[in-house]
Structure formats: C-alpha cells, structure tokens
Write a protein that binds this DNA or RNA. Structure first.
Lengths: 211, 211
DNA sequence: GCTACACTACACCGTGCAGTGTAGTTACGA
DNA sequence: TCGTAACTACACTGCACGGTGTAGTGTAGC
C-alpha cells in the first residue's frame, strides 16, 4: 500500500502476522476460544488457513500469542495513562479529578470495548490451554504494580495515606475499573460508566485520604 | 440406600435429576461448557446418556438449569449469611468483625471453591448459549440488593453513612469478595483470603463510617 | 527464462461430539 | 403373571473442526 521507502523485505510477512493476530484476538475475545474456528480466523484475517498454520503452529500457540499481545498492550496503555494523568500532581483538591481522568482513560482507550474483561475470562477459562509459565507469569501484576508505585509517591507527598501502596492500588482498581469490566458484556447492562468511576474514586479517597 | 420410610414414588426420578445437575455443574464450572461432553456428564452422574437427554432436552437447556440452580444456591447462601451475621448489630465497635464474618461466610461456604467466579466466567462466556431472558434476569442483582437493604438499615441506625445503600453494597462486594473470586482459579495464586477480606472491610469502613 | 519463495485454494483425514433410535432389562403395581 | 414405565447399553448419523499435504500461482532476484 504505502510506499515502503525502505527495505520491503519481510514486510508482507509482518503485515500478515499482525492481521492474523488481530483477527484471532477479536474472535477469541468475542466468541471464545473453543467456538472460534481456525477457518474463520483465516477468513477474517484475509489469509489462507494454511498460512495461519505456517505462522503459528497450532491453535494453542496462536492463543498464547494473542494473550501476550493483549497483556502487553494493556500494560503500555496503563503506563501511558499514568504518565498523562498522575505524574504532575498539583494539590489535594485536584486529586479526585486526576484519578477520575486516569480511570476513564483506561476504561475507554485501553480497555476499549471491555477487552480487559474478555481477556480475563479468556485467561481463566482457557488457562488449561496455555503453557503454565505464561498463565502465572503475568497475572496483570505489572499494571497494578505501576499504579502502586505511583500511589507510593502520593503517600510520600502527603496526598494519600497509603502505607501499603499495593493494597491501595488493588482497592482503587476494585472500586473503579473492575465493576465496569465485569458488568459489561452482558446484554442490557447499560451502566453509567462515568458515575461508577466518580463514585468509586470518591469512596477510594474517603478511605485513603490522609489524616 | 436409607429406608424410605415414606412413599418411594418418583424418588429415583428426583435423585437422578439432581445427580445429573450436580455432575453437569461440576464439569461445566471446572472444564467449561464447550469442553464438557454429554457422555462425560452422564458417566459422572452414574446415568445413561439417554437419560440425560430424556430429563433435559439438550446441552443448552442443561446449562440453563445449572445456571438457575447455582444462582439460586448463591442467593440463599448470601441471605443466610446476612441473617447470621448482620441482623443483630451490637455497636459500631463490632461492625468490622461482623462484616468480616459476613464476607468470609460467603467466600467459604457459598462460593466454596471459587464456584462464584467460575459461574461468572461461565455466564459471560456462554451468554450466547443461554436464552436471553435468563442471562439478564438475574445478573447477581438479588444478592447485592439484599446486602443493600441491610446497609440501608445500618444507615438508619447510624452505624454507616450510606446515603446510596446500593452503591455502598457494590463497593463492599468490590472490596472484599470480588478480589477473591477473580484471582482464584489461576495456578499459584495463593492469596491470603483472610487478609484480603479484613483489609477490604477496613477500607470500606473508612469510606462509609459516619461522620 | 529460471529458481526460490511466499502464499492460496482445496481436497482430505481423523476425531470428537451432540443428538437419536431402539432393543433389551429391571422394577413395580394391578 | 402380565403390562407398563423407567432406564441402560449401544449402535449410529451427521457435522464441525483441527490439522496436513499438495498442486498451482504470483513475484522478485539473478
């Protein structure tokens, strides 16, 4: 499509790899692993089924690749949301607003259409289909640790009373993000995302405000 | 086995129905819907496959029955936990202990071996396999409403400051029960359930304690 | 033009599984 | 003792799907 301007070596290869991964991701997350056929993945990726098998050896390996990719995307999205919303902390008065922006940034951009929840389901349900190392290695630890690190800084600055930053991060996620990711995906849920986040942040601040 | 002492009419029938339901429940929750074969359900229930199909028409109907049964069991267990731990509220000093007992009662007895989490996964993942009415009708609303009703009473008694009892109930569940149900099921998770609940209750009380 | 390579199209195999049909066995009530 | 209903054992169908093998096509470098 676009003029390569560089070496065209292996470019088509990378494109196809990505197309397959994206198609598999969308299908696995929406329909589930078992109900997604490799024929459909190939068709959705605009690629022959044989190519799918040439790139990724079998279905389980493809799943592992999808999981890795999604976890990584989530992790970087969370980190960016932290950088954009929580690094410059003006004063206690604006902490609530900053936290709301942070939570909303994650729920809308990173998680998008409740990908996070779908991924969780996928991981727990399909845990037996993944090489053991992978299913325990990640466990969403990284994003929460990043939040915890930030909260530790808030504690030092007197904006938060969080002697156990990791626990505070867990509670923050539980109050703001988890309710959204778990309720979505069900028909007719129709929750007010903004209200959930605002009320979650307020409850969090009542519990973790210093003094 | 035991002497009937009454009419033996239809007893075998009810026994078999139950055996099938239990076997299906265990298998669906542990292995997932798609990966559970009807032959295995029949074998596990000690019943011929034909009988399974005579009792429940097809696999989806069996799933619906399992969901109904589990939701109902959960609902009654929550109600009983409320009755046993939260009806007699001595004073504010013992509220923390009462709430901890309540949360632990749910996580250990009702939810048992993280059945709740597995059910959730099952519901979200297999939502397309259920008649639409069922997947929206329940949505764990009933148990949370029961908790909300109790919290409203606490608010009237001055034990809690919960102007929106339902929101408080959501936050309570998010802080104490949800973390456990979602982290379990993964290998090597090994969380300290008691600590999670105690810390969750404390954070909740910091956020909802009056004055 | 030739070779090498990436890819497609397509046929194909084996298997597991939902669901059915049925003959035979057991138990029980009249 | 007979009839009936519940249940089992088992064979069987149809199908979807994971995975493979291969012949053929387009493309790029030499």
């Amino acid at each position: 499509m676009a003029a390569p301007a560089g070496k065209s070596i292996r470019e088509g290869s990378a494109q196809k790899r990505s197309a397959i991964l994206l198609a598999a991701r969308a299908l696995f997350l929406s329909d589930g692993f078992d109900r997604t056929s490799m024929d459909l993945v190939a068709a959705e990726a605009g690629v022959s089924k044989r190519t799918v098998y040439d790139y990724y050896g079998d279905k389980r390996t493809l799943l592992a690749a999808v999981v890795d990719h999604t976890v990584e995307a989530l992790s970087t999205a969370v980190q960016r949301a932290i950088d954009e919303n929580l690094v410059v902390v003006p004063d206690a008065a604006q902490l609530e607003h900053a936290l709301v922006s942070f939570a909303e940034s994650i729920t809308v951009s990173a998680i998008g259409s409740s990908d996070y929840a779908a991924l969780m389901r996928l991981l727990y349900t399909e845990a037996t289909n993944l090489p053991e190392t992978r299913s325990m290695a990640w466990n969403a630890e990284e994003p929460e640790d990043a939040v915890a690190t930030r909260f530790a800084a808030f504690d030092r600055d007197g904006l938060l009373h969080a002697p156990d930053p990791r626990l505070a991060a867990d509670h923050f996620v539980a109050l703001t993000i988890s309710p959204l990711t778990s309720s979505l995906g069900v028909v007719g849920a129709e929750v007010d995302e903004h209200r959930v986040i605002v009320e979650g942040v307020r409850a969090f601040l009542r519990a973790y405000r210093p003094f």
